[in-house]
Amino acid sequence: MSAWKKRWKRDLDMRVPDLREDIKNASIPETEEKLTVWQRFCAWLERYKRRVVACVASGVAVIVGLCVTLPHLKNDTSITPSVTASGSVVALQINPEVLFSVDGDGMVTAVASGNADADVILSDETRLNSMKGVPVYEATAIFTDYAAKLGFLELTAKPAVRVLTHEGKTTWNEEVKNGLESYFKTKGVYGVVVDECLRYTEFCEATGLPASQKAEEIVSGVRALQTLYTKRVAEDKSGEELKTLYGEFVAVEEFGAILDIMEALGMDVTALRELLILPTTIVEYGKKIDAYLVQQFADLEKKHNKAYKEVRAEISDNEYAAHLQSIVEEYGSISAYWASLQK
């Protein structure tokens, strides 16, 4: 993307105000069904008439082609169906870790948590939907911003994020890397982006996906995933196993201690104390996880609000380049810097 387009979008993102609470909360008037089925069909046809004509023409061409070629193919065993990779998967690792399924145009079609921490961000439908149907370089910047808001990304340190893509016809690592670097510069954060394009098997290993040698399988695998990691790993678990899992994710003792403090401060934590009781059914597990994630988001947002809202001067391209150079001089490479942060 051109530099001026990026600058423009960054400027707009800074300018766009938050929606006022009274407008957010205003009720939506009830509406009646305006069109008959025929009218809706006509509206659809009017809108998509070019595509409909193109599809019909293509269909006729295919039928004619088949009529001509099929008789010759009857006993030909050398023809194999063509497999085209029309999409790909981009993984973003901060901690948290998240997977974006991307179509051929680079638009996000599905998002799934790569680990339990990502669930805090993706548990809300509005937040989740803000990352779908948008270019992957936008979605990754949105997710990174949430990670910063919740304190997963330390803005005052020199954080690093890793972008993984897999081999194939189209990789989006360049766009995503540029988008994230722009994000860091705008926010005044000396963040670093590691981007790696891996072979299929290495990518699956690095992201925890089932091993595969085909882009289509990896893409469809991510699209089929339950969005939240904590719910995905609970599938097909027994009652006792669910209790254990829940105890690991919720850290019941620490959470209990937090509730004691909240109660001492005069807050009503009756409903939250229900979350300390271990679930035994998958339905109960799902409801408690949902409620816990809402609480987690609110807690982390409040805790890190000051650091997140702090105004930092935008970093120039030269300053950023100098920062990357210093990292390379000290650690040998950006990847080595990332590895050092994981220890």
Binding site: K9, I28, T126
Partner: peptide, 22 residues
């Protein structure tokens, strides 16, 4: 939104506000 989904309204704002602003 026409069916009363307020979250869809918030999503619409997130997705379109930049373009409407410009």
């Amino acid at each position: 939104i026409a069916q009363g989904d307020n979250k869809a309204f918030e999503t619409l704002y997130i997705r379109t506000s930049r373009g409407v602003y410009a």
